[in-house]
Design a protein around this nucleic acid. Structure first.
Lengths: 234, 234
DNA sequence: CAGTGGTCTAGACCACAGG
DNA sequence: CTGTGGTCTAGACCACTGG
């Protein structure tokens, strides 16, 4: 019965996926426990654990103590989207990155979406910086940045003319966690103008807020030029 | 010097993050190797490995054999987006899910985007199913689905009137991998009509292609009703 | 209460790549 | 060549939770 030995966790993972794929183990089925699988595969339980834990993280399996491990009934697709610094995002596409600051206003009153995202009262004074990133000269993304001076006072000394707030913050204001949202918005006003997009054109938008513990650092709305796509694999 | 013992990997992970955050270890710095850290923390090397490997997966650290472990210079934000079955996506928001098939056409010629995504010649006959998902009665997402009959012949027997292709495929045609893209598109034609969106309105769009090995299973374009946001944390 | 996964340990060998 | 992370093992104890 045990013609083959599986002595590394990747091989075990593949074998488990093969059984699921071949419908030997169907969605909803409880699969044998770690000890049994270890015996069958001729390896240590820790090795089986490594393989199954990894599959659980990717949503293929569901594991619960005592209840055991089962094939996910509704495999939730987990797409991991890499959101690098914009300069690198552009350079990784093999293009030249350019940046120009558009405006900087210390003490600008927080608009509604910013205040809500940062958990502050509307109208609280923030440092507001807008800028345009280019890829090979073409408009790439419009950065609408709001910085909480109370959390990052060092930002007051920056003019953000040459270095984008995007880049400066990442290396000078480490965050503990953040919220991120993807949506579509119509091009309008200043973003439309700088992105050279027709008013009303659909833009892909990323909104991100980062925190240092319970203190908001910054909120940003990134409006990408028309046609932008974020790709990944699952 | 060793007042505190760190005897579980989460505690070690937090301590490492604390040191990075406190700038004891700066971006680009090489940190001590696993053996040294294990000694310092008073635990086994495997425990340190677990903590550091996890941080490397989330992009905070970069690890290379012999070169050691260093604090990432440009921490790439990895946002994990859950893309569940649409029915569950709606239900998790506490809303009622509804689905109605719009059209089904067996042998429809593949349009350009579909053919390109599936690696097929343009015009190849596919099974084309369109439908609308609703949340509490309101249009939620328009599903434009193309199924490769050559890979999933069982789909021919389905009428997809009550069960969406989205749901049927997930439980009947397991995939090995897939591509996914997020973008913004202007509402137009049939999607606009069924989503009750003004023509030209910006729609958030997910395009996904799934594969069984090297054979394409299905390509889908999901056009969400205006205002849709995909959220996650980082 | 008892079965399951979650984790830790101490030791070992190996693969890779830097110098 | 050698230091580093990557992994496996055999055993152990623990935490959670289903029955």
């Amino acid at each position: 019965m045990s013609g083959v030995r599986f002595n590394n966790w990747q091989a075990i993972q593949e074998e488990v996926l093969r059984r699921i794929h071949a419908r030997e183990w169907k969605p909803g089925d409880v699969i044998p426990n770690e000890a049994d699988l270890a015996r069958e595969f001729g390896c240590a339980r820790a090795t089986v654990n490594r393989a199954l834990r990894s599959l659980a993280e990717s949503g293929v399996l569901e594991r619960r103590r005592k209840a055991g491990t089962r094939v996910a009934l509704h495999p939730v697709t987990k797409a991991t989207v890499d959101v690098p610094v914009i300069r690198r995002e552009v350079e990784e596409r093999g293009l030249d990155h350019g940046y120009e600051r558009i405006a900087r206003h210390d003490g600008a009153p927080a608009p509604l979406w910013t205040a809500a995202a940062m958990g502050l009262a509307r109208g609280v004074p923030l440092l507001h910086v807008t800028g345009l990133h280019r890829a090979d000269g073409a408009p790439y993304v419009y950065e609408d940045r709001w910085i909480n001076i109370a959390t990052v006072p060092e930002a007051k000394a920056q003019d953000f003319r040459r270095t984008s707030a995007n880049e400066w913050l990442l290396t000078h204001a480490p965050y503990t966690h953040g919220d991120i949202a993807f949506t579509a918005m119509a091009a309008d006003g200043e973003p439309a103008e700088h992105l050279e997009a027709a008013p009303g054109a659909p833009l892909f938008v990323i909104e991100r807020t980062t925190w240092d513990g319970d203190r908001a650092i910054t909120a940003v709305r990134l409006s990408y030029a028309p046609g932008h796509r974020v790709r990944t694999t699952i």
